[in-house]
Design a binder for these strands. Structure first.
Lengths: 208, 208, 208, 208
DNA sequence: GATGAATGAGAGTTCATTCAT
DNA sequence: TATGAATGAACTCTCATTCAT
């Protein structure tokens, strides 16, 4: 009986997490389509197929939804960076892999939201108040990029006269989602082409 | 009397335009501080020192304020590009001048707003509905950059194997306001340094 | 087996009533602390240590909780009046005993809730709809007080020219919980003092 | 022109104050009928004949409406006390006048609201947060009553062995609106009778 | 019987926009 | 022309109540 109840518990818990993930996914979509302010909790709930109040059982407010999305995505990026670190040998190939993951891979849609959140002025205030951990996550991402760049410098791959912080920052803003979208819309390129070319510019730009 | 009335007219008209410019300037400031949605028409009006209704005599809605700001800034950029075209000789130095104008010069604050507007999802819808002319302006900017890049290619300065559209898009997203701000906040750099280094990466990246 | 099941039944029933009493007691506390509207069913349930739904197995709604509390307290008052009737000899000493019971005794906290419920406008509607029996109980209390006053009149203790109904009503509103609390907070008096003095004013006021 | 504009101003201001008073009056009515929590801002607004938003131009929130009502009524009571002080000679007749004003006069309906507000547990918290000035006003009322009672004591009218604070508190809770209503509903008395009789009990109770 | 996740009506509040003055 | 009081749609969030497990 104890075992059965435990199974039951974990089933409930699993369903709960699945739903929570579903809410996040839907919220992400709607935020991307309509923007944060033009998205109502009603819209999110009805798209998920649940009642408005149910969303509040998972997230205490609209703010927290964005923050949760941001956090989840950052974690995913960090995870992916670990994967890249293992699969690739040189710092450059690791960074290239990251670039593809974020802009050409399955993550590209999320990158858009991340970027639009990260750039809008109103979200900044929100993060200042509630998203203390996000800063940490973001810094961790930036740090890993910086580490890779430093490694590359030491190996003599990258130009040691360029400040690492500026290289990092340039890397992280290499592709703005909008320009990217525009290029895709033109129809001359597939995602991988764009990322490859952009990466080429960057790595030639920083090479020793 | 006809002359007097005409003078009167033109005086009124001048005052009107001055006020319109003032509203735009103030709106720009507040949008940057608070973000679009967290800025109320009341706040803008009271900062300008006029009544809320008066703002509506100049701009039909809050949306149109953003669009007008965007448009004004784009015109300014286009004007500045013409200046650069005249003052500088090589395509690269022209593009460098543009980079400095937008990120290190007086225009850098506006660039921030432009960028945050351009990236946020809710503004996209707005532009789709109302800002048909903005697309044209933006395309004109992109075209001039592309022209300069093509010129550079023809002169043998830039790598002809890189697609111009990708070079253009990379150029236009070189500096995201947030990374830029972050770098400045660190205190290791002055604006000019950042832009110079970033430009260096870009131009080495695209050189023949 | 019939006997065993009966025992089982009555045990269950006893537990049920104990829990019902516990719910009432907790609800009373919370209503006093937070007020009716600022108290959620969740709070009550979690303070009792049961699930929200379980409260609804005992009381059909939040309203009914208040009514049940009111009813229970009225019954308690009626019971106490019977006790007073037996223990004391003169009508005055009986009324004095009642006064102490309600304001200085263990019942004083309940008197507060009773009073705040009785006076608030929203509870009136509730009573009008659901609490038909409460009127009866309240009237019975008032009647007994009136009886004691009439007895006193007949004995020549109380002024026969004062209408009994007005004496009754004055007696019942002698101490409002707030004034009472205020006096206690001042620190000059203990509950018994306050009640004694107030009683003195009343009984001198009505004496023949 | 200055004069005309001034007149215009004062007209506007007068209209504004009239409307504000109307809102207060209507809110008072509705709060009395439905209670604070069961009254919606919509209901108040629509009864006044204005839009919901307009109410917020006069009062920053629902809370503030109650507080404003309370404050207004307290001021009115204080004003009336001054009138009584002038018109009547003895402390007792002054207190009697006050009693009639609050329970038998035009103010009796307001006394009900005042009382129901004053006694409900949720309003207490509200006052603790926002209504700091109300405490002051209430204390001033209590003080004046206490003064009159002290005067009476000095003149040898009232019993000097009774603590003034208890006499004050008894005076202020002499008539609870509910008992009062009940007595009226019975149909045996007119308001003046009730107040007269109740006063009689009180003053005989405290006489020297 | 007991649970607590799900519901959804309804609350207070904001603010872009209008229009009588 | 300039004003700012008035509007009311739309928002986020709460919580009494229900019901499948």
């Amino acid at each position: 009986m104890s075992s059965s109840s435990q199974v039951h518990r974990s089933l409930k818990e699993k369903q709960r997490q699945e739903r929570e993930a579903l809410i996040l996914k839907v919220a992400e979509d709607v935020f991307l389509e309509r923007g944060y302010h033009d998205t109502s909790m009603d819209e999110i709930a009805s798209r998920v197929g649940i009642a408005k109040g149910t969303v509040y059982l998972h997230f205490p407010g609209k703010d927290d939804l964005v923050i949760a999305i941001f956090e989840r995505d950052m974690q995913e990026i960090l995870r992916q960076m670990d994967v890249s670190l293992d699969c690739q040998s040189s710092p450059q190939s690791k960074l290239e892999a990251l670039l593809h993951f974020m802009y050409a891979g399955l993550f590209s849609k999320r990158t858009q939201l991340l970027s639009s959140i990260y750039h809008s002025a109103d979200m900044q205030r929100l993060f200042a108040e509630k998203g203390s951990c996000l800063r940490v996550l973001w810094d961790r991402v930036a740090q890993r990029v910086a580490q890779l760049l430093d490694e590359g410098k030491e190996r003599g791959d990258f130009d040691p006269t360029l400040p690492t912080s500026i290289m990092t920052s340039t890397f992280l803003s290499l592709l703005s989602p909008k320009s990217y979208e525009r290029l895709l819309a033109d129809g001359h390129f597939v995602p991988d082409d764009i990322v490859t070319h952009t990466g080429k510019i960057f790595f030639r730009g920083i090479q020793a």
